[in-house]
Simulated assay, not measured.
Amino acid sequence: MTNIISRFCRIKKVSSADTHIVIRTNDGEESVDSDLTSVYKHVGLDYPKFFKMDDLSKYGILAADYLFKGYNWKQGYEDTDIGIILSNASGSLDTDVEFNKTINNKELFFPSPAIFVYTLSNIVMGEICIRYKIKGENIFLLSETLPAEQLANYATHLLDVKNARAVIVGWAEYRHGVPDVLLMYAEKNTLPAKDATELSSMQIELLYR
């Protein structure tokens, strides 16, 4: 049985100077004010913890919410049936820099525990798992560029060998105020062949454009 990408969400800025982000999903494309509070309201999220997160995790949650909006994504799956594989280039560097600002002044030295808890690259993955009760296998990869082939291979391995029933797979990056996110939901094919998008490195690269 073929594995397919049944849903996707791509969030990016056309340029770092742009004040809007482009959000592309199965349902189309829209341009939204990049202020995170505005995006939160636009999406219709009801998740107070959102405002305590670092920006990388916020964009991860936003992308996941778009990914699942209007889609019966669990379809009877158990929480442990769903895996997650994410990647980025800078880990949690954006948050690390913010944390460093709280400790590099000897006179105003006060390490921020609220920021410190987000100084791990896989925290965005953890926040998605907490929000959507995902308890399957997971891995976070660091790569200079989108590792499309590696992501496709890992997702295929979970679905075909580890017997996962679905996998969230993608790229979640945030640096200098610029989000660069692609989340995909891969499953065993339940659609007619003509409507299915096959899980492959080529398709991942196409969706990332």
Rank of each mutant, 00 (worst) to 15 (best):
I21T: 08
T156F: 08
Y174P: 03
F116A: 05
R24P: 07
K135L: 08
L151F: 01
L67S: 04
Y59H: 04
Q150Y: 10
V14N: 15
L86H: 03
S112D: 08
N138H: 01
R165F: 01
M202L: 12
F110E: 14
W73P: 04
F116T: 00
S15P: 09
K135E: 11
E144R: 11
R10H: 05
N88H: 02
N72Q: 09
T197Q: 14
V181W: 11
Y132V: 01
F50A: 11
E98H: 07
L207C: 06
K101Q: 13
E144Y: 03
Y77H: 08
L151G: 02
S92D: 04
I115G: 11
C9S: 10
H157V: 04
V178D: 15
Y132G: 00
I168C: 02
M53I: 00
L199A: 08
K188D: 05
V32A: 12
T80I: 08
I123P: 09
N163R: 10
A155E: 06
I4H: 03
Y47K: 06
T80W: 11
I82S: 06
D79P: 12
L45F: 03
P147E: 08
S15N: 13
A193P: 11
L182W: 01
A114T: 12
T95E: 14
F99R: 13
S34D: 15
I123Q: 08
R24T: 09
F51E: 05
